[in-house]
Design a protein around this nucleic acid. Sequence first.
DNA 1: TAGATTGTTAATCGATTAACAATC
DNA 2: TAGATTGTTAATCGATTAACAATC
Lengths: 209, 209
Amino acid sequence: MIKRTINRLFIYKNALNHFKKLGFVKVFSDNLADAVGVTPSQVRKDFSAFAISGNRRGGYRVNDLLENINKILGKNKVEEVIVVGSGNIGRALIRYNEGFMKENIKIVAAFDTDSSKADRDNAIPILPFEEMADFIREKGIKVGIIAVPDGAAQHVFEVMANAGIKGVMNFAPIMLKGTPTAVISNVNLALELENIIYYVNAGESAAYL
Amino acid sequence: MIKRTINRLFIYKNALNHFKKLGFVKVFSDNLADAVGVTPSQVRKDFSAFAISGNRRGGYRVNDLLENINKILGKNKVEEVIVVGSGNIGRALIRYNEGFMKENIKIVAAFDTDSSKADRDNAIPILPFEEMADFIREKGIKVGIIAVPDGAAQHVFEVMANAGIKGVMNFAPIMLKGTPTAVISNVNLALELENIIYYVNAGESAAYL
DNA sequence: TAGATTGTTAATCGATTAACAATC
DNA sequence: TAGATTGTTAATCGATTAACAATC
């Protein structure tokens, strides 16, 4: 699926930046494959899908490759995102903001239905949920993170989508329904850990999940 | 792959607990499929793979299903895990601990090479990295979370693996090499967001990533 | 019984890998 | 040139979906 190819493109980009920092001028599909854990065929196939070409015998020039990939992935300006829910996950994400900044992602505000949690003076202000829709519209926010309790997630999603949000990272363990105008990615750290624990207790090893 | 089936089993379990709370006594493959976003065939296939059976015409009894799934997934006792790195992600995870507790997962300690960050009085103590190996051995810890800078991740992983860690959730954007005795799951929230942003800017919609 | 749903097999779909001719 | 690596096609692999006989 092209989704996976796009995802790997981001990963290749990351590896290439490492290589560049190490002074590499050229890389071979073999090098990239090793670095990110796929086969060399996969690397070449992925590039081929986007008409990125190297030199037979000479591999790929790191700078050219990065330029090509960046053109495809279009990472240029900072993307402003919002977080809804200032519980454990929400606050954790806000605190992790500087990690996102490295990738040109900036959390610009958080929202919470409990307006007693409002804190407009914070570097990343925490605002009452009622202000969210206007905020989204005014600032033209396109991406939001849902970090509210299960029961509230669907409603929050609908309000977001109505206000113009086009992409959502959802930490609530439910399927968001309706409004097929947004890209949704579900993240569940506890589920991830549960899976790891399952394989550990099952005595499995040497597996990448 | 059976990995995906196991993962879905955890998700079914979650949905079933919801159903149970709502008073459902029976569910059909259709209900579960709707709830978690797969096809009814998939649900039946997954159950079939573990010889879980229902009643033709009568669907599955919620309690029986939960019992069967729990038997397979073996979730009973609390699993103690450690976190290495008390930077942004590490601290965020520690703070999210109560979210993990709901799934019987407990972060019991964090470790950091910067021993000035040590804090033995915290509910979840932050200890010097040098103490980690002994801690793992003494407490029989099997699962660890790597939340250190890229450059340190490989070394941390090796120390962990040598001390007996069998499962790792890795937040560093690198492929951990060697030591094929541990299950590894890579998590990269920034990458997840980058993907969402890509599709939003590409004008795609209605996609689950 | 008639009808609806399971359980399972077969068909489809898509992604990964292998292989190799082209070529730098 | 000889040798190594790409680019792409074909083969493989595995997962999902469809279909339907079994049956409650």
